[in-house]
């Protein structure tokens, strides 16, 4: 465990703004040889771009069909839900507005990053009361957590 973590920390340690690069996007070959010269170490380090190249709405369409997820299409990203959410206040990795948006646009990498936090929703319903567009974010969180696990909607396993 400890060795694994150390390895993770050492990955890309030459990058000045290392903390702003996602772990999974740093590629560092164990051994790199070019023209008979050993070039392992920083020369082989590669940072994969984080550019979004495709919008994919299949997961979003799946969410719409799940119980209580039907109204998610109304969301206009005002952020009222996140503003009142006591969970988001304590742990900002849980952000209803953000979750809805990344699912809508199908940003796979982002979904992978935060999908386990969706279960933090306490179901207090403050967001649904605050939502100006009647999206029922509390219900959408239910639908999202099912969707992330469901085989029916792409994106969850």
């Amino acid at each position: 465990m400890a060795a694994e973590e150390r390895k993770k920390e050492e990955k890309g340690r030459f990058i000045a703004e290392r903390r702003y690069v996602d772990d999974q996007r740093i590629v560092e070959p164990e051994k790199l040889e070019a023209g008979g010269v050993d070039m392992s170490g920083r020369w082989g380090t590669l940072v994969l771009p984080r550019t979004i190249e495709e919008f994919d709405h299949s997961l979003f369409e799946g969410v719409k069909r799940l119980p209580r997820g039907g109204k998610v299409g109304k969301c206009w990203q005002c952020g009222n839900c996140t503003a009142v959410c006591p969970v988001a206040h304590a742990n900002p990795m849980f952000n209803p507005r953000y979750l809805i948006h990344i699912v809508r646009m199908g940003y796979q990498a982002e979904i992978e990053k935060v999908k386990d936090y969706v279960y933090l929703c306490s179901g207090c319903g403050l967001c649904s009361a605050a939502c100006p567009k009647d999206v029922d974010p509390q219900g959408v969180m239910i639908a999202l957590s099912i969707a992330f696990k469901s085989g029916r909607a792409k994106g969850g396993r």
Partner: peptide
Amino acid sequence: MCPPFRLVDF
């Protein structure tokens, strides 16, 4: 248009 933005959260 920012080149580092493609790689770093900057």
